[in-house]
Design a protein around this nucleic acid. Structure first.
Length: 976
DNA sequence: ACTGGCTGCCC
DNA sequence: ATTCTGC
DNA sequence: GCAGAATGGGCAGCCAGT
């Protein structure tokens, strides 16, 4: 029965879904793309042919582009001279900039200098996931290609096998089961009841012991690999053995790379010294008197660092990029925050003392930005482009680079190792921080036809001039992940410290006080005083920056007027976004009460929409900014028109007379309103889900064409009629908001609130909020610590969502079927996993989401070991995988079941869970999935079923509300 | 003119 | 967005 | 408790290739 039935059911499932799909225009593609069992022939095609074709294609391309390399190298000279001009322009620009009156003016100038288009190319703060996985896919497929030929025969048997495995699993699983229990007990606080035998096991594989048994050099992983490898070989079939051997090879590679990675710093430093030895003479000539450091010895981590003597460039020189690279390099050696801060502080002090004009580019480089957030200037470079450029620049193949990336986990290290070694006829000019920054801006400014290749050319031209260390950090900058342990917050602290320690002498403009606290450092009492001064500077700077998040403005103000007077020059201004107040997640009402003990607070609905900071300017124009200070003005023309009407604002000169015409008691002439914009169905008076909101146009939306109507839910007022309200307590700010902003049903509303600290009342309010289609509650103190001051605490509010509560919220038991190799601190482990639910109807596993959070470091270790034992070289035929989903690096036997929590369910264009059940062409996926624990008591067939997933999807509050409304009003179904 | 892939930005 | 972790 | 760094789904915008 097993075999036939399963095949039959596969078949019927297919024939069922196929016709359905056909009448849905959407799904033509899906039909082909989805891997489904009875389509095996096609699947074979997909798996074995496509990658080949793709590889060939890429190889061809990269070789042809290789030829271009020499051409681009020639070009680079021209590029450089071009950028020189730009740099000069920029310098002029900065020089001539009058910061005071208009942050925006100076910004506009800058922008028009470097770019003549205003369509924002978005930034590059995160590694591109799809790019990542693409790369992985390529690697895996190519590496296993040979195997595939052999395997394809056995593929036919797999569906049959599946039934067998199903039956035999309990027996088969028992050894791993024990293991996983053991592992679990390590990773979980809650310890399961274990038999004595298990108790023993529990003790033995503790990481510490493993460490002891390993040699000095080889990391723990060495053991992890070898043990499972042997075990598995003994008990598995021949077929699997092949897989294992391959696995072993791979693991060896990783293993080696691990070691390599550890040594790489030292190595590179040595090579650095050699190469720099030649050039150091050159620098010595140029050096200011007293300085005698070569560039690769530059060490801002040094004790008693002297910003001039310990630097290696001369006064008024442009800061060499090498200095920045060395700074970052020093930072990599420690994780201690104070040390990191001091390193960057020292670097800044040198810049201040020698080349103050380079402070701005330095800050941008260290915070990995190219412009203020609200300018919308973004690199538009992802991993894909970066790897392509790197391949072209170095002559390596994409494949090789990507494979290397898997083991190194960092594109900077890959670039460093593959750096173009061929010596050019003439030594390229040394890079300066300003030059690199300018080029980054150039890259960001390019758009339009063949912009990709132009960007690529720029990157290559930069790479040519890089030494090893520089290449490392340049690539990280381009990838948008400096990963240096200091984010924007801490860079600001460093800057504040630097500007406080190294200051201009009050006596003359020329003199510089190198260390204002020199005499205080040895005295304990004085040190406290020093710390106070530093902290005060810190506050001044942070307060200035969060009200005016523009480094050019802030730094120019510091250089011209000093840190202490910053508040006069960096004031809150409508038209310039400020950093918004954020909220901390809270696990329950009790935690809320504990945190806000004896303090009055208010609870508000937390709406599931988009944060909007609405700026109403004196001239009647309105700007809207996102949570991350992006300019969203072009996204909400409807809101702007509505508000201008509502508040009797008129654009243009006539506003004076107009305003007098209408008599309103509390007129808004300027304001900054903090609000949530939510998709809203006015007819049904219903809040719509986030997924609806997100389908709105983002740029140049025309108000007539807008389909998704929107309602503003105001919750805070930060600025009103020329006055900043940030120092008022929340209670007063909110009252002003109520007073000045009229309520318009379905257009302009206020967050539903309740001021009470009664547990039951809050509980009820929380339930209500969920019922009304909200995410939960925001909790804010009314009077105490209730200023809108991000500089003190950016997360001054609390948020309480249903799915934060323990034992509440949707939980699923899902099967791990694939893994994605991690990057950064997860290098050498899995950084993410592919999860599936089980569909007994079709006897297949359907992907439902990827997972990458909620995992403890130890979980990652343990999982890497246990999953390696069940690694397979290709997905099972009964895995239903959409081809547009990025393929995992490794596939696994369906064995481990994990408990996953999520906030919501969504219809997914890529995941196949419950495909056809909730929607004809779309599967279901999870919003905010996170790992809870291993369910070693469950077999994969006991995982949450497709049907259950559908149920959960339909039981979402939003769906319930929708149905209820539909029933009541007997209207047509509304679907999105 | 259409599509797929990449990127950035919302959450 | 969520979560974990070192300081 | 903070800041930083791992990672999620899913949308529109843009570009390259067909």
């Amino acid at each position: 029965m097993s075999k036939n039935q399963s095949i039959k059911s596969f078949f019927t499932s297919k024939t069922n879904t196929a016709p359905k799909k056909e009448d849905e225009s959407v799904t033509k593609k899906e039909d082909i793309k989805t891997t489904s069992p009875e389509r095996k022939p096609i699947k074979e095609d997909l798996v074995s042919k496509t990658p080949k074709a793709e590889n060939n294609k890429r190889q061809r391309k990269s070789s042809s582009e290789l030829k271009n390399l020499s051409a681009s190298a020639k070009k680079s000279k021209k590029n450089e001279s071009d950028s020189e001009i730009l740099i000069e322009e920029e310098k002029e620009n900065i020089k001539s900039k009058k910061l005071l009156d208009s942050s925006s003016d100076s910004i506009k100038n800058e922008k028009s200098e470097s770019s003549d288009f205003d369509s924002p190319i978005k930034g590059n703060k995160s590694l591109n996931k799809s790019a990542d996985s693409k790369r992985r896919k390529l690697v895996i497929e190519s590496s296993s290609e040979e195997e595939k030929a052999k395997k394809s025969d056995s593929e036919d048997e797999k569906p049959k096998k599946k039934k067998e495995t199903k039956k035999t699993k309990p027996a088969k699983k028992s050894p791993p089961l024990k293991n996983s229990k053991v592992l679990k007990s390590e990773s979980e606080d809650e310890i399961m009841q274990l038999s004595e035998e298990e108790e023993e096991k529990k003790v033995s594989p503790k990481p510490k012991l493993i460490e002891k048994t390993t040699t000095k050099k080889s990391p723990k992983k060495k053991d992890f690999f070898k043990k499972p490898e042997k075990k598995v070989k003994e008990e598995k079939t021949e077929e699997i053995q092949v897989v294992e051997e391959k696995k072993a090879e791979e693991t060896k590679v990783i293993e080696v790379d691990k070691e390599v990675k550890k040594e790489i710093k030292e190595e590179t430093k040595e090579t650095e010294k050699k190469t720099e030895a030649k050039t150091s003479l050159f620098f010595n000539l140029k050096k200011a008197s007293g300085a005698s450091v070569s560039s690769s010895d530059y060490n801002p981590a040094k004790e008693n660092y002297h910003p001039i003597k310990d630097a290696f460039w001369a006064k008024n020189d442009q800061v060499p990029y090498k200095a920045l690279a060395q700074t970052l390099f020093c930072m990599e050696k420690t994780t201690k925050r104070l040390e990191l801060l001091s390193i960057v502080t020292n670097y800044f002090r040198s810049v201040l003392a020698l080349s103050p004009k380079d402070l701005i580019p330095s800050i941008y480089m260290l915070t990995n930005k190219v412009a203020p957030d609200y300018e919308g200037l973004e690199l538009g470079i992802g991993d894909t482009v970066l790897f392509k450029s790197l391949a072209e620049a170095t002559g390596s193949t994409l494949q090789k680079l990507k494979l290397e990336f898997q083991s190194k986990g960092d594109i900077g290290l890959v670039a460093e190792a593959n750096r173009c070694n061929q010596k050019l006829l003439f030594t390229p000019k040394k890079l300066t921080v300003n030059a690199v920054f300018s080029k980054l801006r150039d890259i960001a400014s390019i758009s339009g036809n063949s912009s990709q290749s132009k960007k690529s050319d720029l990157i290559k031209s930069l790479l040519v001039s890089c030494d090893a260390i520089e290449a490392r950090y340049l690539m990280r900058s381009l990838a948008g992940k400096l990963r240096n342990g200091l984010g924007e917050q801490s860079i600001l602290v460093s800057l504040a410290h630097a500007c406080t320690i190294t200051v201009q002498s009050p006596k003359s403009d020329e003199d510089l006080i190198i260390d204002r606290f020199e005499k205080m450092r040895s005295n304990d009492q004085k040190i406290d005083e020093m710390k106070k001064i530093l902290e005060k500077s810190n506050q001044i700077l942070k307060k200035a920056y969060y009200q005016c998040p523009n480094y050019s403005v802030v730094i120019n103000a510091i250089l011209e007027h000093g840190l202490d007077n910053l508040d006069q020059y960096c004031k809150l201004t409508p038209g310039v976004p400020l950093k918004p107040m954020l909220a901390y997640p809270t696990k329950g009402i009790h935690e809320v009460l504990k945190r806000f003990e004896n303090v009055e607070f208010s609870c508000e609905y937390k709406y599931d929409g988009e944060r909007a900071q609405i700026h109403i300017l004196e001239d009647g124009s309105i700007n809207i900014y996102s949570r991350n200070s992006e300019n969203n003005t072009g996204k909400y023309p409807d809101i702007i028109e509505f508000l201008q009407e509502l508040l009797h604002l008129k654009k243009g000169k006539n506003n004076e007379s107009e305003k007098e015409d209408v008599e309103i008691e509390n007129r808004v002439t300027s304001a900054i309103l903090d609000a949530e914009v939510v998709a809203y169905d006015i007819e049904k008076k219903m809040i719509q889900p986030f997924q609806v909101l997100s389908t709105r146009k983002r740029k140049d939306a025309a108000s007539e064409e807008i389909k998704v109507k929107v309602c503003i839910f105001g919750f805070d007022l930060i600025y009103l009629n020329k006055e900043s309200l940030i120092d008022l307590p929340f209670r007063k700010r909110r009252d002003l908001m109520y007073k000045y902003f009229p309520l318009v049903e379905g257009k302009m509303m206020f967050a539903v609130k309740m001021d009470s600290n009664d547990v039951e009342a809050i509980q009820e309010f929380l339930d209500n909020s969920i019922r009304d289609g909200c995410e939960g509650l925001m909790i804010k103190t009314l009077d105490d610590e209730a200023h809108y001051e991000i500089s003190k605490r950016s997360h001054n509010w609390l948020k309480l969502k249903k799915d934060y509560l323990e034992g509440v919220g949707d939980t699923l038991d899902l099967v791990v079927i694939g893994g994605y190799l991690g990057t950064g601190k997860r290098t050498g482990l899995y950084g993410g996993y592919l999860l599936a639910c089980y569909d007994p109807e079709n006897e297949e596993y359907q992907t439902i989401c990827k997972l990458g959070t909620g995992l403890k470091d130890n979980d990652l270790q343990v999982q890497f070991e246990s999953l390696n034992k069940i690694k397979i070289d290709r997905p099972k035929s009964y895995y239903r995988i959409n081809d547009t989903l990025e393929q995992p690096d490794h596939w696994f036997e369906p064995e481990q079941v994990w408990e996953i929590k999520c906030a919501d369910f969504s219809l997914s264009p890529v995941h196949t869970a419950a495909l056809g059940l909730a929607d004809r062409g779309k599967g279901i996926s999870l919003r905010f999935p996170r790992f809870l624990r291993l369910r070693d008591d469950k077999k994969p067939e006991d995982a949450t079923s497709a049907e259950q997933v559908t149920e959960m999807y339909k039981n979402q509050q939003q769906m319930l509300n929708l149905n209820e409304k539909d029933k009541k009003e007997e209207e047509d179904e509304e679907d999105y």
